[in-house]
Simulated assay, not measured.
Amino acid sequence: MSFEVVSQSRCFNGTQFVYRHISQETGTPMRLAAYIPPQAAKGKVPVVWFLSGLTCTEENFTVKAGAQRIASELGLILIAPDTSPRGEGVPDDPEGAYDFGLGAGFYVDATQEPWAKNYRMRSYIERELPTLIAENLPADMERQGITGHSMGGHGALTIALRNPGRFKAVSAFAPISSPMHCPWGEKALSNYIGADRSAWREYDTGALIESGARVPDILVDQGTADSFLDSQLKPQLLEEACVKAGQPLTLRRQEGYDHSYFFIASFIEDHLRWHAQRLA
């Protein structure tokens, strides 16, 4: 099904769209934001995906990161999907917690009830949405990059590692480096996937790298003043896995930066230039 335009706004000589469509994977309406740069008027251009973190929708990155200016200069389409299914009948955390359920799909395909019917964000991002983008937008799907923040950084890294060759550039901002070894990840994976921790490995960056998955290189920025650094994000686990496996990684610890979109806005230009060089 084609995208329905929810809104569109002129932005740095391109257009910022928000689209809506009915997802076959989640069984719900889904929204996504897409910035189309001016270069797309002359033909297909590269695509960079941004996967957002806990509590976010397609709006957070779109309005807070300040990415459109540099995407316009570099000629990049920016795709920002929602982070979970939503709508009537979609289950949420029974206690209303922010770190599970609505806004917290964790980019997995749930296998446990009541989550399995709707929480299929892995298949939505890996299979359904790329097809729709190729059919509806001026996107060169042979030149794709992927990045994300926090839960979305976990999503970007694991999706790239599970789909070798699809993404020519991979980066992340303050990713959940090992969901198998932090409270956010343990809660999400045990509820969505079940108690068998071996089934969690396909959703853990370090485990995927340990099992032989590779991408050409990875750029990660992590703020040293991030309140989630030691308890949830644990970049040292990513660093250790990459060193042990010989997976190229540039991990930059940014002094004094926290977990907010002020951090993302400060370094989004670096990331988009990293992607553009590899998508040229």
Rank of each mutant, 00 (worst) to 15 (best):
F100H: 09
P114H: 11
L102Q: 06
S72E: 09
S150E: 08
Y124K: 05
L129G: 01
Y124T: 06
E128Q: 13
I70F: 03
R162S: 10
F167V: 02
R122Y: 15
I159H: 05
P81L: 14
R120C: 06
S84L: 04
L74E: 09
A67F: 04
L102D: 00
S72V: 15
T158D: 09
G145P: 11
L161F: 06
V108M: 01
R69L: 09
G96W: 13
E88A: 14
G66I: 10
A116K: 15
G165A: 11
G87Q: 08
I159S: 04
E113Q: 13
G152D: 05
N60W: 11
A134C: 02
D99H: 12
G145F: 03
V108N: 06
G152M: 10
A65V: 15
T131S: 12
E73G: 01
H149I: 12
F100D: 01
F61N: 02
Y107V: 06
E88D: 14
V90T: 00
P130A: 11
E113N: 03
F106C: 05
A71V: 08
Y107N: 06
I77V: 13
G145V: 08
Q112P: 04
M151E: 10
T131V: 15
A71I: 06
P138E: 07
N163F: 10
F167I: 11
H154L: 15
I77D: 03
T147C: 14
I146C: 01
G145A: 14
N60H: 15
L74H: 04
G103T: 09
W115D: 03
A139Y: 07
A80I: 15
L132Q: 08
P114K: 07
N60L: 09
I133A: 01
F61M: 15
E113W: 06
S72F: 15
S84C: 02
K117A: 13
G103E: 06
Q144S: 03
N118E: 00
S72Y: 13
A104Q: 02
A160F: 10
E113H: 00
F106V: 05
V108F: 02
E88I: 12
R120H: 08
A65S: 11
P164N: 10
A71L: 08
E135P: 04
I70D: 01
A65K: 09
T57E: 13
D93S: 04
Q112E: 15
A97F: 07
L129Y: 11
K168I: 12
A116L: 03
L137D: 00
D82M: 08
I146F: 13
T83V: 15
A160H: 05
A160K: 04
Y124M: 03
P85C: 00
C56T: 07
N136P: 00
K117V: 14
A97E: 12
G145N: 05
E58T: 01
I146K: 00
R166A: 13
G103H: 08
Y98C: 07
L74N: 01
N163I: 06
F61H: 03
L137R: 00
E126T: 10
A80G: 04
L137V: 02
R120D: 02
W115C: 05
R143E: 08
S72N: 12
I133P: 00
P114M: 10
D99C: 01
W115A: 03
K64A: 08
I159E: 08
F167C: 05
P164G: 03
A80N: 14
G155R: 05
R127P: 00
